[in-house]
Every structure is written in structure tokens, then in C-alpha cells.
């Protein structure tokens, strides 16, 4: 017994090392991207407040480019308003006004927006996450889609009272259902590798025709994002992984290196759809 204790004491540093290595590996590998608790992430109270303080200072540096983006967006919206006004006038001028048919736009009403500021962001790691300065008390919930003025940013994966953690589009664990604008062929957008400006659209059928520069938008098949949000543009074809499908290289429209203000989208239909789906499953099981 004494020998055993002696042995343990003499080699205690090995056991301590094994213990710490085990804990680190456990933290490293148990970690799934949609984990529930946020205590060991940058969205906990202490880290979030430090990042908020720092972002109060650094957020000013990007203002000029953001302003330019916003003005561009503003101009686009203004043009859209003008064309819509023109359409309405056309309808009014008809003697028998036809029922207005905003098939694509009416869906926007089913979504609610929450504004938030990005306080921590990374683009160079193999798996990237973003921290927002708004939490559950401000109406942010888990599984909300996040967009900025240029395009899709990510999905909320953890929420504390005053901060939220977003799984970035620049994370191989995130798959986004996308399609080529004005066609119904959809594929799965995933980020592989190191360049924060490009992603890959996979599982596109062989016969789909496309041109360089075509716009890629969200398909709306997941209820997180409304259909038709811009994701990026086609840059070229990538080597196929499968004979029946090919992959496209997509230039992302969101500049992840300078995110500032983002919107979290809450789908008013999401709960209803989920409830319906779960009821369906239950009734099938019975």
C-alpha cells in the first residue's frame, strides 16, 4: 500500500497531466455546434460585457464602408418602391381592379426582425462563431436566422439573457438550403476551407444550366430564412464529387470580415409548422 502511494506521488505529474488532457479533449470533442448551454462560450455574461466594451470603440472604424453599403441598399429599395408604386397606379387605373397578387412579397409579413450588433466575430478559424449583443430579454431566440444588409450571416445557436451566439455561415457544420434565382433547382451551401469570401454550393443536379454571376438565394425550405434572401453569386464550377451532381463555387455577398449591425429573423410561422409536423409524426406513430 505504501509503495502504491509512493508510486502515485512520485508520478503525480503524469496523472495530473492526463487529467487535464482528458478534460480538454472532452471539451474539444463533446462539443456539438448546437449546444444548449453558453457558460463556456463567448456569450456568457463576463465575456459578453468585455466584448461589448471593446466593440463600443471598434464599431466606429467600419462606419464609412457600412454607410456606403446602406446607401446602395437604400437606392435599391427606393427603386423597388418606385416600381411598386407604378404597378399599383396601373392597377388603380384599371376599371375593375384585380386583386393584388404579391405572391413573393406577402410572405415577408410572416417574419419579424430584431436588430443586434456583432460584438465578436472570427473568419480565420476552421469553425467560426459570431457573438451578438442582444439576448433572450431582447427577443432573440434559438434557431433564428441572422442576416445583414448584404445577405445571410448565420443561425442563432445559443442565447443568454443579454447575448447570443451565432453559428456563422463560415462553419462547416452549417448547411444552408439555396437555389439559383428564378429556377427551382436547389442545393446545399456549405463552407469548406479557409477563404472567408467563398463557399460551395453542393448537390446541384447535372442538367441545371447556370451562368457565371447568377444570383444564389435562400430556398425557404427551412423555416429559418424567408425565401429569396441573397446569399451570393456564382463564381464558377468546382470539381464534382459525384457523377450525378456538381458543385458550384459561390462568392458570398456578405462580407464576414466587417460585420456590424445584423438582423435576427423570427418566423411567425415556425412554431405553427413545427407543431404541425410533430402532430403529423405523432399521428403516424399511433
Amino acid at each position: 500500500m505504501k509503495n502504491l502511494i509512493d508510486f502515485l506521488l512520485r508520478h503525480s505529474s503524469w496523472f495530473v497531466f492526463a487529467f487535464f488532457a482528458f478534460i480538454s479533449c472532452w471539451l474539444l470533442f463533446k462539443n456539438n455546434p448546437y449546444q444548449q448551454h453558453i457558460y463556456l462560450t463567448s456569450a456568457n455574461a463576463v465575456t459578453a460585457s468585455i466584448y461589448k466594451g471593446a466593440s463600443n470603440v471598434t464599431s466606429y472604424f467600419n462606419l464609412q464602408s457600412i454607410n456606403a453599403d446602406l446607401q446602395e441598399r437604400n437606392a435599391l429599395l427606393e427603386m423597388e418602391v418606385l416600381s411598386l408604386k407604378k404597378q399599383i397606379r396601373n392597377y388603380h387605373s384599371l376599371e375593375n381592379p384585380i386583386e393584388l397578387n404579391f405572391a413573393d412579397d406577402s410572405i415577408v409579413c410572416d417574419y419579424e426582425y430584431h436588430f443586434a450588433n456583432v460584438i465578436n466575430n472570427s473568419v480565420s478559424k476552421p469553425k467560426n462563431y459570431i457573438t451578438l449583443d442582444k439576448g433572450s430579454l431582447d427577443g432573440i431566440e434559438k434557431d433564428m436566422g441572422v442576416v445583414d444588409q448584404n445577405g445571410v450571416v448565420g443561425i442563432v445557436c445559443g442565447v443568454s439573457d443579454h447575448a447570443a451566439r451565432v453559428i456563422s455561415l463560415l462553419n462547416p457544420d452549417m448547411h444552408l438550403s439555396c437555389k439559383i434565382k428564378n429556377s427551382d433547382f436547389f442545393g446545399s451551401l456549405v463552407w469548406r476551407g479557409t477563404n472567408p469570401y467563398y463557399a460551395t454550393l453542393e448537390e446541384m443536379p447535372q442538367h441545371v444550366k447556370f451562368q457565371k454571376g447568377d444570383t444564389i438565394v435562400t430556398s425557404g425550405y427551412s423555416d429559418l430564412f424567408p425565401p429569396g434572401l441573397i446569399v451570393g453569386t456564382i463564381e464558377g464550377r468546382e470539381s464534382a464529387t459525384d457523377n450525378n451532381f456538381y458543385s458550384l463555387k459561390i462568392k458570398l455577398s456578405t462580407d464576414f470580415t466587417r460585420l456590424s449591425t445584423v438582423r435576427a429573423i423570427k418566423s411567425k410561422m415556425a412554431n405553427e409548422i413545427k407543431q404541425l409536423e410533430s402532430e403529423q409524426i405523432e399521428s403516424e406513430q399511433q
Partner: peptide
């Protein structure tokens, strides 16, 4: 030695918490 490892592990863990990389810096520091 044990104390050094404990300090290193904790320091790594704190950096991990800030940079959302659970366990990575902790293991490397140890």
C-alpha cells in the same frame, strides 16, 4: 510541475471561453 499545469490549463480555458474554442487552448497550454 502540477501547479504549473493547473495554471496553464486554467489560462488556456479562459482564452478558450473568449474565443469559442472549447478545450483547444487548454490542451495546448497544458
Amino acid at each position: 510541475k502540477n501547479l504549473t499545469m493547473a495554471i496553464a490549463f486554467l489560462a488556456g480555458l479562459i482564452i478558450d471561453i473568449f474565443s469559442d474554442t472549447q478545450g483547444m487552448n487548454a490542451l495546448a497550454c497544458t
